[in-house]
């Protein structure tokens, strides 16, 4: 980890020094334990702030649409990208959010990120004050206790099923000994849900989203959700109610938001991690990815020349679900 961190700082420092980029987006230590937060480095002296560990969970591609003005002036942006970030960036190139030459991708093959909630649950009710990692093990310290865990037991669900840990596209690659996930593409959770009775599925889904408080953290954390005006914010016409007392609005919001990412979602799991109410949004978005693969043999963000799957038409496309 330290080796990777050193390399990142070196690369970022060099890019800023040579004025190849105006800004590097990466991670720094957060103020709370077990939290790394996104940071925006503009001067070379600040690269020492950059860190790399198993808590760098945000998808940094989400910030690219905010810097359109900067990029239009001809400046470039450096992004520290995991496998999922790189795929989101490819999606952004496909959708003309940014041009390929405007972004410098500093790629890091990723071992999967830790799920804070799983760890917190494990040591409950103790409060965690420090987390350190050493290869495959993590050490958690708190008041009067210290525990050692295996890292692979506490990875995010979406990191376990990750299909592309190695970034698909990069300018600078930081070498590491990452292996692809053993459970790569194994959506057992979805299959289990699918095998249940129809009414039971509906009940589970409505129970899950009934906790939604409409904070839109999932939308803001999602790299594919970058519309200037989201359908939920639109007031003329108002597509959907904005309160939580009408449960149908909650259901509709989750269905419509996830469907807007159909064929565009890279399964980074940012939405699920961002949710303060612990709603399992990946239950919905993973299904869309499975369908994109099943119906169109398509995976998001692999081919920079390609188009998102629902943007193209071919005569041989599947007609599943349509009247004969």
């Amino acid at each position: 980890m330290e080796k990777i961190e050193k390399k990142i700082r070196e690369i970022a420092g060099k890019l800023l020094k040579d004025e190849k980029v105006k800004l590097v987006i990466g991670f720094e230590n957060g103020t709370l334990p077990m939290k790394a937060r996104p940071t925006f480095i503009k001067i070379q002296e600040n690269v020492e702030k950059l860190v790399w560990n198993s808590l760098c969970e945000n998808n940094l591609a989400v910030y690219i649409p905010f810097y359109r003005q900067l990029m239009d002036k001809g400046d470039k942006i450096g992004v520290i990208a995991k496998g999922c970030d790189a795929r989101s960036l490819v999606l952004h190139f496909q959708e003309n959010v940014a041009k390929r030459e405007q972004i410098v991708i500093i790629a890091i093959p990723c071992d999967g990120m830790l799920d804070r909630r799983k760890i917190e649950k494990e040591v409950f009710p103790n409060e965690i004050t420090e987390l350190s990692e050493n290869g495959d093990t993590i050490v958690i310290k708190g008041k009067e206790f210290e525990k050692t865990f295996k890292k692979t037991d506490f990875l995010c669900d979406d990191c376990n099923t990750c299909t592309h840990r190695k970034p698909v596209l990069y300018d600078e690659l930081v070498e590491s000994s990452t292996k692809e996930s053993e459970k790569s593409g194994d959506y057992g959770k979805i299959k289990e849900f699918e095998s249940k009775e129809q009414d039971k599925r509906w009940k589970l889904f409505t129970d899950e989203v009934s906790r939604c408080i409409r904070c839109y953290a999932c939308r803001n954390a999602c790299p594919s959700c970058y519309c200037k005006e989201c359908f939920v914010d639109c007031t003329n016409p108002q597509w959907i109610g904005t309160t939580i007392d009408e449960k149908t609005d909650l259901e509709l919001f989750q269905i419509i938001r996830t469907f807007h990412t159909a064929g565009r979602c890279v399964n980074c799991g940012s939405c699920t991690r961002a949710c303060p109410m612990d709603i399992d949004i990946s239950l919905l978005v993973n299904k869309l990815s499975i369908d994109a693969k099943r119906l169109f043999d398509y995976e998001t963000g692999l081919d920079i020349e390609g188009k998102p799957v629902l943007n193209k038409y071919s005569e041989d496309d599947s007609n599943e679900g349509f009247f004969e």
Partner: peptide, 13 residues
């Protein structure tokens, strides 16, 4: 895909 998603979530076939 929309139909498949909705039926997956438990809407009547």
């Amino acid at each position: 895909m929309l139909k498949s998603l909705l039926e997956y979530l438990g809407l009547e076939k």
